[in-house]
């Protein structure tokens, strides 16, 4: 695995997620990341950023600000996502219903469950008005 970093700041619109996904894809290919790792990182960013944009608490006049950094070393990819929009700890989200039959299965609540299930470490900090989520994926 080739070590390296990618840093991206978003204007925070859902439409930008496409550009971000393409950048992560290119970064992953350049660093020989397995396809599955690329996929689950893109999924995690999509789920977490969508969550912030749709459910974040932004006071009047405050624009969403999101920054992402990816770091790769020989054995891990570490993704750090920082956002404003009020304190929200996604690691504390309650577990969704995954077992009811089709008629009773609730719609929604899956996104964070996917992120949590696929990351090897999922950590959250709140400091100076910024949510910082750190996701670690083992690649070897």
């Amino acid at each position: 695995m080739i070590s390296g970093n990618l840093n991206v700041s978003l204007m925070a619109r859902l439409s930008e997620l496409r550009d971000l996904a393409a950048m992560v894809e290119t970064f992953g290919e350049a660093h020989d990341l397995p396809h599955r790792t690329n996929f689950i990182i893109n999924l995690a960013l999509e789920e977490l950023i969508t969550n912030t944009l749709l459910h974040g608490q932004f006071e009047d006049g405050v624009e969403p600000e999101i920054s992402i950094s990816l770091g790769v070393n020989e054995s891990q990819v570490v993704v750090v996502l920082e956002s404003n929009g009020g304190q929200f700890d996604p690691t504390q989200d309650s577990n969704p219903d995954l077992t009811s039959d089709l008629a009773d299965r609730p719609i929604g609540g899956l996104g964070l469950h996917l992120v949590k299930s696929q990351a090897d470490r999922f950590e959250y900090e709140w400091a100076d008005g910024i949510n910082r989520i750190t996701l670690t994926y083992n690649t070897s």
Binding site: A103, I107, L110
Partner: peptide, 19 residues
């Protein structure tokens, strides 16, 4: 090549509707 929970939600709704 990619689907997120927002797309899976649509499939769940459709499956419920046609069941």
């Amino acid at each position: 090549s990619f689907i997120s929970s927002s797309g899976m939600r649509v499939l769940l709704i459709a499956a419920k509707r046609v069941r």
